[in-house]
Structures are given as structure tokens and as C-alpha cells.
């Protein structure tokens, strides 16, 4: 499949994960989120931005626990929980947030 963003066609795999993460942009993130039934809020953006920063450093999305800790640091301890992340991304913070952030899907027994 492919997305169209800012007049350009952006290639994605069967499930909608981008083939080339460098083609990501914020408008596209809004669009993917909408397809997933999510309206991007400040909190969603915090998560997405952290995922992209972490990925830039480690070439992988952060472990769920690393993510919750980072969110707790940024947005307060009450929001640093797996439960809260599932509220933001009902299909699972790992997979759904990665898709919106333009990152590859985490694979394996997760």
C-alpha cells in the first residue's frame, strides 16, 4: 500500500508501516492515526516524538518499560503506566504508536 502526503506517494507495507522511515512527516502521522481511529493529542505526540528520538539513537523502538518511564518523566508519574499507554493507543503502544511514528513494526513474541 501507499500513503499520499504533501503531494508525494509514500510507500508502506501491507499493514501500513512505512518502508522508508525518512519519508515520515507530521501531517502523515495525523493521517495514519486517523486511519487507526486516533485523534492526535499532545500526549500522543509526546509518545510519537519519544519513539522517533529513541529510534534515531538505537535503531529500534524502545521497550515498553523504557517508554513508560520516559513518559512518566515528561508528563508526570500518573501517566507513566502501561494502562495509560493503552488508553492512548488501544491496539498496543508498541505496534500502533510505531506505525504512527513511521517506525517498523516490532516483531517476535510481542
Amino acid at each position: 500500500m501507499a500513503y499520499t502526503s504533501k503531494g508525494a506517494s509514500i510507500e508502506a507495507d501491507e499493514e501500513g508501516y512505512l518502508i522508508n522511515i525518512n519519508e515520515w512527516n507530521e501531517e502523515l502521522a495525523d493521517q495514519i492515526a486517523k486511519d487507526e481511529g486516533i485523534t492526535m493529542s499532545t500526549e500522543h505526540w509526546e509518545v510519537v516524538n519519544f519513539l522517533r528520538e529513541y529510534y534515531a539513537e538505537y535503531q529500534i523502538a524502545p521497550a515498553v518499560r523504557v517508554l513508560t518511564k520516559a513518559i512518566a518523566k515528561k508528563m508526570g508519574p500518573d501517566k507513566g503506566s502501561n494502562k495509560y499507554l493503552y488508553e492512548l493507543f488501544p491496539y498496543g503502544p508498541g505496534k500502533q504508536a510505531c506505525k504512527i511514528a513511521g517506525l517498523p513494526k516490532p516483531t517476535g513474541c510481542v
Binding site: Y58, I60, P62, A63, G108
Partner: peptide
């Protein structure tokens, strides 16, 4: 590994 978790990320985790 199955996840594609590189060594630096693993150490950090």
C-alpha cells in the same frame, strides 16, 4: 534476536 534489538539498545534496556 527476533525483535531486532541491537546490542546498544539491549544494554540500555
Amino acid at each position: 534476536n527476533n525483535l531486532g534489538l541491537p546490542a546498544p539498545a539491549l544494554l540500555n534496556t
